[in-house]
Design a binder for these strands. Structure first.
Length: 126
DNA sequence: CGCATGACCCAGG
DNA sequence: GCCTGGGCCATGC
């Protein structure tokens, strides 16, 4: 492993989070806590990572919701409405409270093989 | 280098 | 179901 010397990975934590989120399939959603557990860091960092998400990186962040199954409000813009619209376009339905059903749309995870190939802990699914 | 800010989750009352 | 406190990483000035 010598790809972390000349690599521009200033923040491996954030880079991991981006990669994990990028593995979320369409029609499914993941919670900040789930991603944070996989990344091996606090749940906050996931939100922070997305807040620092570069605009030149079309990451499917719209599939990330909070523990309540609702879309998190952010500082600027009405992007959270656009996020809901994109999820609905993928087949996700919301109730009157704006919440989705985790028993149907919750992302089970990337899989133990993916975890091992990327250097994560596959024991998270036990 | 120190301070402030930012898209959160979990447990307890 | 709501409120409070604790935990945590990166970026900008």
């Amino acid at each position: 492993m010598t790809d972390e010397t000349t690599e521009s990975r200033k923040s491996k934590l954030h880079d991991r989070i981006y990669e994990i989120i990028d593995e979320i399939p369409a029609g499914q959603v993941a919670t900040y806590g789930q991603i944070s557990k996989i990344a091996g860091c606090g749940a906050r960092v996931v939100g922070y990572a997305l807040s620092s998400l570069p605009a030149d990186r079309p990451l499917c962040w719209h599939r990330v919701v909070n523990a309540k199954g609702e879309i998190s409000l952010r500082s600027s813009g009405d992007n959270h409405w656009k996020q809901r619209r994109m999820l609905q376009d993928e087949g996700v339905t919301f109730d009157k409270k704006g919440r989705l059903d985790f028993s149907v749309y919750r992302w089970p995870g990337p899989g133990w093989l993916w975890l091992e190939q990327h250097g994560y802990d596959p024991g998270l699914f036990e």
